[in-house]
């Protein structure tokens, strides 16, 4: 039950202040609700702050078609004014303000000597550990949006059917490259 508390706490402040609140509260670590104690692992590292901005742009881009659609419906005036556009505008606004921070707060990673831990998800939480000894190959990807914000996505591929690729977005580009080198040095050379 105590699992939900921090989640609820971060949901408690009104939408306007929520944007900045988690940032101040959790400066370095701990997005994960006391899960660390059970695991005995080290604390989680936060992702790069720019990742929050990138997430926000993503949400805005997703919202734009809906807003345009609702405005067009509004123009045709089949329904009384504001019945469609207003709710959609409110939902979009809340999503744009709240969603990126919550997502950002829910994500984190921990790099240990021989394994990488990736935590993600608000409703559906997933907490994955990949030992470096099981990594098949590693990608560092950078989309246009990520390039603008100077961040990158690190992807570890394993041979398992579940988690055949584990992605860790929102790393500073240079850090992602360094992590890749670091992990690669752990993979013993097998075949070319």
């Amino acid at each position: 039950m105590d699992k939900t508390k921090p989640e609820a706490a971060s949901a408690a402040p009104p939408p306007t202040s929520a944007d900045t609140a988690p940032e101040i509260r959790a400066d370095q670590a701990v997005a994960t609700n006391g899960v660390n104690d059970a695991d005995g692992d080290e604390d989680l590292t936060r992702l790069h702050p720019n990742y929050r901005q990138a997430l926000r742009v993503q949400v805005i881009l997703t919202a734009i078609p809906f807003i345009i659609g609702s405005l067009i419906l509004e123009e045709t005036s089949v329904l009384p004014p504001g019945v469609i556009a207003l709710p959609i505008a409110i939902v979009a606004l809340v999503a744009i303000i709240r969603l990126p921070s919550r997502r950002f707060a829910a994500r984190g990673y921990a790099m240990a000597a021989d394994r990488l831990r990736v935590v993600r998800g608000i409703l559906f939480r997933a907490d994955t550990i990949v030992p470096f000894g099981r990594v098949q190959h590693i990608d560092v990807d950078q989309g246009p949006l990520e390039r603008f914000f100077g961040i990158a996505t690190l992807t570890l591929h394993t041979a398992g059917n579940h988690n055949s690729s584990v992605t860790l977005p929102g790393l500073e580009h240079q850090l992602a490259m360094d992590m890749r080198e670091d992990i690669r040095s752990h993979i013993k050379r097998e075949t070319v």
């Binding site: 699992k3 939480r125 907490d127 550990i129 990949v130 030992p131 579940h162 988690n163 584990v166």
Partner: peptide, 23 residues
């Protein structure tokens, strides 16, 4: 190859999880 602890919205509140093993 990997170990993942998964919790859906109900599981989070009720204190159980699914363990996914990368086979």
């Amino acid at each position: 190859h990997s170990v993942e602890v998964n919790q859906g919205p109900i599981a989070q509140r009720r204190g159980y999880a699914t363990l996914h093993l990368g086979l």
